[in-house]
């Protein structure tokens, strides 16, 4: 059960925004550990194409997810301009490969429209309107849980 799907993000919580494809996404800043540039990835056997591999994060092996592929878009070349958002998912550390990272915004309760739980399998918590930007707030747990892997994390 994904937590918070029925609730709008709390008033004034910070969100890191980033670009994937033509869309802008947001992630609860409290889950973001750091932002890294390109790091060599080691592919793991038997993993979906949305998991290009694992990286060495200061001595720890961390899986990196290609968010483009995960969201059904066509993949892009992974190069030195790529950005990896390192996030904490419970007790695990994971990486999200994105195209560019923007700013940190506040999302007020009133501006966010929660996505109903049965509304598709999309790993989305809510859609928010901030200024004239449409931000899709990602559900990190769901993003990883339904990653085309047979075994749940």
């Amino acid at each position: 059960m994904a937590a918070g799907v029925n609730e709008a993000p709390a008033r004034g919580t910070g969100y890191l925004t980033f670009q994937v494809g033509a869309q802008q996404f947001a992630l609860d800043i409290s889950k973001v550990q750091e932002i890294r540039g390109y790091a060599p990835l080691t592919p793991l056997p038997g993993t979906p194409s949305s998991l290009p591999g694992v990286m060495n994060l200061r001595g720890t092996v961390v899986p990196v997810m290609d968010v483009r592929r995960r969201l059904g878009m066509q993949g892009r070349e992974y190069d030195r301009f790529s950005v990896i958002v390192v996030a904490t998912k419970g007790s695990q550390t994971v990486g999200l490969l994105v195209e560019a990272v923007s700013d940190v915004v506040s999302i007020a309760r009133a501006d966010a429209n929660p996505v109903p739980p049965e509304g598709g399998g999309a790993p989305v918590e809510a859609v928010a309107l901030v200024g004239d930007r449409v931000l899709t707030v990602l559900d990190l747990e769901k993003l990883w849980r339904d990653n085309g892997d047979e075994l749940a994390a």
């Binding site: 080691t42 793991l44 056997p45 060495n56 001595g59 092996v61 994971v94 749940a152 994390a153």
Partner: peptide, 23 residues
């Protein structure tokens, strides 16, 4: 253990970081 941050990969005991940083 790869499952520490991801999941168990069948066929692998785990991963290791070598002296030169490669996995």
């Amino acid at each position: 253990a790869i499952e520490a941050n991801y999941r168990k990969i069948p066929g692998l005991l785990g991963a290791a970081i070598l002296g030169d940083g490669r996995i």
